[in-house]
């Protein structure tokens, strides 16, 4: 897939001297969902804001669809839709008019059929004549997405799209994002909810202290940095680990009935077969086996702590 966004050596130092971004390089492929993870103040929103034209970069270059965001800002911005973190919406305007406004602002002629499609896709068609202030929080968030889609952008930025929304609405938002991706829209989202990135993203980028620590395919990231755990449930409790099992660096549960074995998913051999053989040789009988993979959250925390 060709890159729709190319970021080269992008840096941002605010007037107060705070370095928000430092030499960020990133390519985002057309049609993918990229999740940007990072702690508060890591630089996620600054990165998005620079690409969208809300913040002026200190150094570096960004191209969207091959257009430089400074010298060809019209062409670059026309390709972008932005859903901000805060619910910022004109309270006294009607839903349908806010979409028409967004479309006009981005230089697209009025197209009621497209506006209707967007509103229907976001389950807002019935509310088209309602004033924005009359909508629930979840609906306002959907209006923000609808506004961002009103001018048919190729790239959609979602800055913390599900911050502060309930579980059912979050799942609803995820569904919307999947449908957008299916329609060919490139999506870049920042999130605090790692489960969200795990659920939806094709690739994960981790930003910390203004630096892009890594960008990996989600599955590869999980394999590369993730660890698996095998929990062996015994039929009877142990007081201490037998000496023959010490090389496996097992953890014994406090009640002595479970042995926990951690192994690297990248290793050529997991060592499970040898472990089970050693357990049998030690005269222990097994009731059950459970395997677990570390979550993206654990991977993320591990990465950030490792870098710190």
């Amino acid at each position: 897939m060709p890159s729709i966004i190319e970021i080269r050596d992008l840096s941002k130092v605010y007037a107060g001297g705070t370095t928000a971004l430092s030499e960020v390089n990133l390519d985002i492929a057309e049609g993918e969902i990229l999740a940007l993870l990072g702690p508060n103040g890591a630089g996620k929103t600054t990165l998005i804001s620079i690409i969208c034209g809300l913040v002026t970069p200190s150094a570096g270059q960004v191209r969207v669809g091959g257009h430089d965001i400074v010298s060809s800002y019209r062409a670059a911005r026309a390709l972008i839709g932005l859903v901000p973190q805060e619910i910022s919406i004109e309270p006294f305007e009607r839903v349908i008019n806010t979409l028409r406004f967004s479309r006009g602002l981005f230089g697209k002629p009025r197209d009621d059929a497209h506006v209707e499609r967007v509103l229907r896709a976001l389950s807002l068609w019935d509310k088209r004549d309602s004033m924005n202030k009359e909508l629930s929080g979840g609906m306002k968030r959907r209006v923000l997405i609808a506004k961002a889609l009103a001018h048919e952008p190729k790239v959609l930025f979602l800055d913390e799209p599900t911050a502060g929304v309930d579980v059912s609405l979050r799942r609803e938002m995820w569904q919307v994002v999947r449908e957008l991706r299916a329609a060919g829209t490139t999506i870049i989202l920042t999130t605090h909810y790692i489960a969200e990135a795990e659920e939806m993203a094709d690739r994960i980028g981790v930003i910390d202290a203004g630096r892009l620590k890594l960008v990996r395919d989600k599955t590869a990231l999980m394999q590369e940095f993730g660890r698996k755990r095998l929990t062996v449930e015994l039929t009877g409790p142990l007081d201490a680990l037998p000496a023959s099992l010490e090389p496996f660096e097992l953890a014994l549960s406090p009640d002595g009935t479970r042995l926990v074995y951690s192994y690297d998913t990248r290793a050529e051999r997991s060592g499970i077969a040898r472990l089970l053989a050693a357990i049998a040789s030690a005269g222990l009988s097994v009731r059950d086996l459970v395997t677990e993979q570390s979550s993206l959250e654990e991977v993320f925390l591990g990465l950030v702590e490792e870098q710190a």
Partner: peptide, 17 residues
Amino acid sequence: FPKFIGTIYEILSAPAS
């Protein structure tokens, strides 16, 4: 008003001079 309610982001991110 757009600055106050936050909708200024849309004006500033639009392809408009």
